[in-house]
Design a protein around this nucleic acid. Structure first.
Lengths: 351, 351
DNA sequence: ATTTAGCACTCATATATTATGAGTGCTAAT
DNA sequence: ATTAGCACTCATAATATATGAGTGCTAAAT
């Protein structure tokens, strides 16, 4: 009954529908496509093909006499099989590096700046999933007595991320004692993961009865305190401003509100994104795939970045916005930014 | 020609108009007021008084046959002369303290948490103008060599705010050298303002030729580098989500966009707010008074908080939103939060 | 076997028309 | 000084009526 159309042409039509819809936010009709597709095909034929694509679940109509709009599945197919691979232009990459390298040695500022760059270039909200020292290994720990009851604990990770916390101590500590304690931790515990440090120290405390016992106990108490407020990873969000500029949201502020609410649930989101990062390449999540009810009308693109001697520190950066986004451009952009971050972070480390 | 009405009654009417408008976002008519004002006055009289208030510039009509809406001047008069002083309830204050005190010794987290609390209680966007170490005085500086070319410079302010930066060094430094350098800075420069530290060191470098010269020079180089990336103050913004929930903005997303754009210009805003903080009490800025074109349809309430031995560290916290806001409640809330912050920060310091 | 012209049909959007009614200012009586 | 009464205004809502972009289907053309 149905005529079969060449797969190539079907793809081309889907591609054009998506591209037109992405740039205009308006349902795409057969006439428009007949014009864009300079193949001399008539709108009637296009209509047939579109009906075909609709039946296959790639397109849908907002209402009977309207043009077509891509479905989640349509976008997915486009991303996987239709759109070609595009990399970030060399100039753009150089610009990024030029603006990120000067953030020397300050991971937090670097990530914030990278997010801001993404907002600017993508005109979408940007996020960063930043790894914390906790996940890293001990390079150096420094104890600095501040007063009788307070002590600053400076933790330097192997990748030279720094976290410092003021902790309360039960009995005062002299500078010499502090230095000794630092020396002990640095020689005995360097290379351990911060997160496992406490367990290791605890075990050691139980097995030892000699003079070290006291030192171990104090170190444990302080580090316990200092690490307790460190999150496992932080979620930075930037550019909420540009969200309400998107036509889908300014037309219907409720949707914007929903998105913002979805973004508030950082933990759920970070958990979801950890899976994407495990893939070790740029990922696109579309609508329902995000698996968070409030974000079902949104998509995000996320790229991993990594640093550390063994690339054991992994984070992610990306953009999030309405499903109607320029996946081709944004994937290239986000991937480039991920690479760029890795580049900068590793560059610093070698110094 | 004009009848004169008792000032008391005029005030009462203005008060009611503002309160009704604040809670409904709808122009207020004479009938409604006649009901609220249980004085048996007829709507006609109210109309006369309202016409009076309009002529005096306190009210305006969106269009001829509509009720009245307060003008900037109306709000201002209300805030200054009509609304009575209200303080935050003791329970609320206790709740704030209970949620802020556990953020022990981490000023950044404390301020972020305070902002989040304001968002929650005020249902408005909240901001914090946070003072930086730069404005404070040296309590302790610690140099920690990380590698041949990198060194961690930990700066502890008198109020125990901590900032650390990794800086690049030209020639390697041993731990002993670093300790000596720390000792030098801590004994010679403690109590100086970080911002003026460089000038002081420079002067000293010029006047000295002895063995200290080298130490001074190195300290200067490192601190110069470490301080260069420290901002004078930071501007934290939270709760942009609740902004679009306000009826004025969800009705007209352009306004929301304008507000968000105005909030992006942090420097201008911080500069404006510094003036408010100088007043050393809670301040209300309404519409044009904000003096930032994009924020002319907004108001903010800001309260100072201070800490340090001589209360020399000053910051601000507040809420920003549409002009139609509950000034009475918000002023009390913001003022309470300011007090609460001061309280917490000083509490920590004493420990 | 495709393709396409043609046509009837749908339905969101735009435009015009007409209530509706909340609210006003003014005047004259209280 | 207050208010009842009335004519007037004007945003908003309701209703009816094009308009036209877009569709599906059929039958003819390639």
């Amino acid at each position: 009954m149905n005529v079969t159309y060449s797969d190539k042409r079907r793809k081309r039509i889907l591609e054009l529908v998506i591209e037109a819809y992405v740039s205009t936010a308006l349902p795409v009709g057969s006439q428009l496509l007949a014009h864009k597709l300079r193949s001399g095909l008539s709108s009637a034929t296009i209509r047939n093909i579109m009906a075909d694509l609709e039946e296959a679940g790639y397109l849908e109509q907002p209402h009977t006499s309207a043009g077509r709009v891509p479905t989640d599945r349509g976008y997915r197919y486009y991303v996987d099989a239709v759109m070609d691979l595009q990399h970030l232009s060399a100039e753009a990459l150089r610009e990024f590096e030029g603006r990120l390298e000067p953030m020397e040695y300050d991971v937090d500022r670097l990530l914030e700046c990278a997010g801001a760059l993404l907002v600017e270039f993508a005109q979408q909200a940007a996020f960063v999933v930043a790894p914390s020292v906790k996940k890293s290994t001990v390079k150096q720990v420094e104890f600095v007595p501040l007063s009788l009851r307070k002590l600053l604990c400076v933790m330097v990770a192997n990748e030279e991320m720094v976290a410092s916390h003021i902790v309360e101590i039960e009995e005062p500590m002299s500078r010499d004692e502090a230095a000794a304690l630092s020396r002990f931790v640095n020689t005995e515990l360097a290379g351990l993961e911060f997160a496992s440090l406490l367990i290791s120290l605890e075990r050691r405390m139980l097995s030892q009865t000699d003079s070290f016992y006291h030192i171990v106990k104090r170190a444990l108490q302080i580090l316990q305190d200092a690490l307790s407020t460190e999150p496992n990873e932080r979620f930075l969000l930037q550019g909420t401003r540009v969200i309400i500029e998107q036509p889908e949201f300014s037309r219907d502020p409720k949707k914007a509100h929903e998105l913002l609410k979805g973004l508030d649930a950082e933990e759920t989101l970070v958990e979801r994104m950890r899976q994407d990062l495990a893939a070790d390449s740029v990922q696109v999540r579309i609508g329902k795939e995000v698996k968070i009810p409030e974000l079902e009308s949104c998509s995000y693109v996320i790229a991993p970045f990594s640093f550390g001697h063994d690339h054991e520190m992994v984070g992610g950066i990306g953009v999030i916005g309405p499903k109607r986004m320029d996946y081709l451009r944004l994937r290239a952009l986000v991937e480039g930014m991920g690479r760029c971050l890795s580049h900068c972070l590793n560059l610093w480390e070698q110094a």
